[in-house]
């Protein structure tokens, strides 16, 4: 078996092995959620508009905890984003009771992307959403206080976007004179 075949096999197995049957059945019922498993890890792709509703369903299904959330910028990505949008919000959930893990890829598009906030579902999303806003300028509607978290408050631009150059701007400090 060649390596790529082995990987394909591995991916196929993931669909069956990544999640216990109960959770797999719940995922199958969620409309608009497409299984796009990779490397044996359970992944679903959804549209930003559906996220708030899907989040509630996932929480009820047993994913108690949101452990990670981040943005990704696919501008200039050769193969193109799998979801066809410039940005993605990637959420990682765990279910301690099932011992399972699920990744949710949410496609968000445009120069000023918008995504619903899930702070009301998993309060821990608060800082992760602030970070994604800070780094990518993704606006989370319904977030209690969407402000920058890692960069200074008067910073302009969103540093992890692909059109934000590395090292092109001298280090800014809060209150220091701006480069002209």
């Amino acid at each position: 078996m060649s390596k790529s075949e082995a990987r394909e096999e591995n991916n196929k197995l993931g669909e069956a092995q990544g999640l216990p049957d109960e959770l797999g059945a719940v995922l199958a019922r969620i409309s608009g959620a497409e299984r796009v498993d990779q490397y044996g890890q359970a992944v679903i792709a959804i549209d930003a508009a559906a996220w708030a509703e899907v989040a509630v369903q996932l929480k009820e299904a047993g994913f108690e905890s949101l452990v990670d959330m981040c943005g990704v910028d696919y501008q200039g990505y050769e193969a193109g984003s799998a979801l066809g949008t410039r940005f993605e919000v990637v959420v990682n959930l765990i279910s301690c009771s099932y011992g399972a893990r699920l990744r949710v890829r949410i496609g968000v598009d445009g120069e000023a992307p918008v995504c619903p906030s899930v702070c009301a579902v998993w309060p821990g999303a608060n800082w992760f959403e602030r970070e994604a806003f800070d780094m990518f300028g993704i606006e989370f509607t319904g977030h209690p206080e969407l402000s920058r978290i890692l960069m200074p408050d008067d910073w302009s631009g969103h540093p992890l976007r692909k059109d934000f150059a590395v090292g092109a701007i001298p280090v800014q400090f809060s209150g220091a004179p701006r480069p002209q």
């Binding site: 702070c119 209690p144 206080e145 402000s147 920058r148 200074p152 408050d153 400090f173 809060s174 209150g175």
Partner: peptide
């Protein structure tokens, strides 16, 4: 220099309930 803008803690009257 030490102001954190929107990131700092504000008085209750300026803070949303959430």
């Amino acid at each position: 220099r030490t102001d954190e803008g929107a990131q700092k803690m504000r008085g209750r009257d300026e803070t949303g309930s959430l």
